[in-house]
Amino acid sequence: MSTLEIKDLSVSVNDKPILSNLSLTVNSGEIHALMGPNGNGKSTLLSTIMGDPDYTVTHGSIMLDGKDVLSMSVDQRSKAGIFLAMQYPIEIPGVTNSDFLKEAINARRESPIRLFEFYRLMEGAIHDLKMKPDLAHRFLNQGFSGGEKKRNEIVQMKLLKPSIAMLDETDSGLDVDALKLVADAILDLHQTAPMGMLVVSHYKRFYDYLHPSHVHVLINGSIILSGEKDLIERIDSEGYDWIYRQYGIDPSNNGKTSSGLLGTCATKGAFNGNL
């Protein structure tokens, strides 16, 4: 059982504030959908949790099972159980997938994994994600299509078995078959070893597969609205304008009035314009 607890988090890039007093708690077994218009801080939140050096935390805390995440280096965060499937996985020429993954697995073990066991696990993950069998011997993400890169992120997630997994637009670049394949692999892992998940996507179809337990809308660096799955339905059909209107948000600046919490009924109320 793991808990990621974010409190009053403010983050800036090159002195420009991106996140402002954001709070969120993710427990094992929960799947949190994070939605919001482009450029409002969703990826910043995930990257900050992972420890991307481009982002500066100016206020607040991130704790994983009571331990201060912000004081950890990036590799320590990973070994503590945090995983980020990146929006744009990086190409590393000269480093093969198998060498990389073996090193990553060994980084969180006391004794090195046996080669036979490693290849059995890797081949299983490659098979599940329907990657080409030569994946192990190819350089990490080099020459991969967009979809292959995204699937390779999930191969890594399956092998590293994080306690908190963050997916940053993993569904973008995937065709409809690959999307289901990836979602099935994520759900399979989630059912075998329940993780806390924080999933960024713009699309209902991906969330339909994942069945998130919580839904949040992040605008202008703050979580404006939280609710359940029907919030995704409404955003999918109506966009974000109704949220701007109801919460008095000017999407062109950082001004906002208040944040709200919507359960299913409250969301239905919002549908009827009663908020």
Binding site: D52, V74, D75, I90, P93, V95
Partner: peptide, 27 residues
């Protein structure tokens, strides 16, 4: 190796030493 490449490898739990070893292996 760009800072983004280092960050990516570190985000999978690799230390600077293991990254160096991986790079060396590749060459």
């Amino acid at each position: 190796m760009s800072p983004k490449q280092l960050y990516y490898l570190q985000s999978r739990g690799l230390t600077m030493e293991s990254i160096t070893l991986l790079l060396a292996k590749g060459y």
